[in-house]
Amino acid sequence: MFEARLTQSAILKKVLDAVKDLLSEATFECSDSGIQVQAMDNAHVSLVSLNLRSDGFDKYRCDRNLSMGMSISCMSKILRCAGAEDTVTLRAWDSPESIVFIFESPNKDKLAEYEMKLINMDQEHLGIPETSYSCVVKMPSAEFTRICRDLSQFGESITFACTKEGIKFSASGDYGSANIKLAQTADADNEEEAIIVNMQEPVKLTFSCRYLNCFVKAGPLCNQVQLSMSDDVPLVCEYKIGDIGHIRYYLAPKIDD
């Protein structure tokens, strides 16, 4: 049997909001250590890696490893049915054909169950090695969201240029050009507002706005986002999910023709 309960269904709602624009379906790998998802978008340009640790759940039981193919749009519709304060429980039996979502109101006077059919999926799993990156930048997620939105008006892609002083985002197109420079914050008193640059080598990379604007949908999960970059390798854009895990987006860079 598989059963995972979260007191705050809002966390799962936010996770779904953070992936539904990129993925139509995904395999949820459930084991004793937690729930993991790795899935590429249809164009193989970006990849979502979601990790929810079993110890972050209020209750977690997984008697045997399960791979459950789920429709993200259907799951998202079901989670929209949960009240903001509801507890959510995911439940499936061994060799399941469906998964049940159970929403319970805080005073336990309302119990709603939604059963979703699982889907058979061919899965392509990429091996992503642990890498040390030339630049790792931590910045407020709301600022990153705003920069991606603002610069998307000027072009289809945004160039990230990182030095030890800070990070510069720039875009150009038919209307003109724009660039935004963020300096590393001198004092780290306010962790949520801090901009921290960890640089080994300066980096300059160009990424598609369309995908960046999907990644920033994870902003409500965490006040800070971490961008890991090395020249000519995919960007890693990471948001922590409270004490329970993280969501990482990988995005292949654009290169000059």
């Binding site: 970006s46 091996g127 598609s208």
Partner: peptide, 14 residues
């Protein structure tokens, strides 16, 4: 115009 790379250019299927 820069061209978009494929993620499979960077990571192997396992």
């Amino acid at each position: 115009t820069p061209i978009q790379n494929d993620l499979k250019e960077f990571y192997a299927l396992v």
